[in-house]
Write a protein that binds this DNA or RNA. Sequence first.
RNA 1: GCGGUAUUGGUGAAGUGGUUAACACACCGGUUUGUGGCACCGGCACACGUGGGUUCGAUCCCCACAUACCGCCCCA
Length: 432
Amino acid sequence: MKYQRPKGTADILPGESVKWQYVEATARQIFEAYRFAEIRTPMFESYEVFSRSSGETSDIVTKEMYDFEDKGGRHLALRPEGTAGVVRAFVENKLYGPEFNKPYKVYYMGPMFRYERPQSGRQREFHQIGVEAFGSESPALDVEVIAMALNLLQAFKIGHLKLALNTLGDPESRQAYHEALVNYLKPHFDELSEDSKVRLEKNPLRVLDSKDKKDQAIVKGAPSILDFLTDSAKAHFDEVKQLLGALNIDYVIDPTMVRGLDYYNHTIFEIMTTSPAFGDKEMTVIAGGRYDGLVHELGGPEVSGFGFGCGLERLLLLLNEQVTKQLAKQLAVYVVGIGTGASEATLKMVQAIRQQGFSADRDYLDRKPKAQFKSADRNQAAVVITIGEDEIKNKTAQVKDMATGIQKTLPVATLQQDFQKVYTDFRNSEGK
RNA sequence: GCGGUAUUGGUGAAGUGGUUAACACACCGGUUUGUGGCACCGGCACACGUGGGUUCGAUCCCCACAUACCGCCCCA
């Protein structure tokens, strides 16, 4: 094959795209119930928007960004995640101004790009649905957004959900913990895996997340972030837990959960699920948290933020057949033309029906009636209209209800002027 | 970026160093004249991811590359 799509990208074909439309439409519905409004930001931004927000040393910035110089010498990057661009837009458009509702709540959906090794549910161009809420430090906001994330997944009937919760505390808590963790790990340095030795230098919290057995044994004895929270950080987290309880939302505290992006603090969460699609292993579908310093970091005032990102490809892998089956679009009318002379009449008929708001299709390959009926059947046509020489002569057409097999002869004029009536008449007779 | 597995028609796949690359599904056509199912018959691979090499000869052996999938890193 001469041309192939770039590594890690996908063509979303008809049949697949209906699922995307369904997921996107459902998400919009839910978000709007929570009063989030859509924001659309560019697919690429100035490189610094991402390097500043995600952290200069984060993996995303150092090895996964698609960055390039444009013809004007600007250093740009394809967005690897959604939050940074939204925050930039929030600041640039001064959405923190007094005339806007607080919290300022937005959602987005679209492609993201990360240069990494593709795997199931993980691509170089992938899609996220995400939300951000700015301007409230209330734990109630944390909980509401988490609840919305759960709502989203529940709307798709995805089971085996697990909400994992942790807090990174405020900068003060974080620094104290950072120190304690490093002090704990240093004496074990030689026992750590090669990966973790590097992590200890770059981002010690990552060691907590190691999949290496020996590392995990060491981590077991490590201090917990929860013991290093300042009073206010602890109060925030306690309130979050209490409110989740008030909504009867189950969660598990995972003090070893960390984040790939540097901008998070306080509450962080992940929603995971197990599915055959991921080899029955746990896979994170939604992840998010609080990022109180980020708006300021990107040049805005001290405005807090809370949001999450949802991996669409991963979500799609979880949609079960029951949900997707009912998505097939039914064809209202298939027009069968018999004989070469019928093409004009057939064309006029499909056009007239389409103009009345119904879907209509026909044959374009001069196939025999039997083959045309087969197509009608395959397309799940509700009604077939047949036009042959006799019908043309008499200005009539055969109209057949495919479910019952009942066929009537009707004037062409009726079909072209009031197909709605014909259609509902058929539907009613089916009910009986 | 590292390690592993895979790559045959529209799809699922079988197969061998050597004249015709199984089988099934799908699709198209037919089984007499204008109607959806079933049955039966027939058709359907510029040749086995791409490029090199070994060989008298390779889809089957070797190398490189590409892509997919799995594990690691990381992550949605």
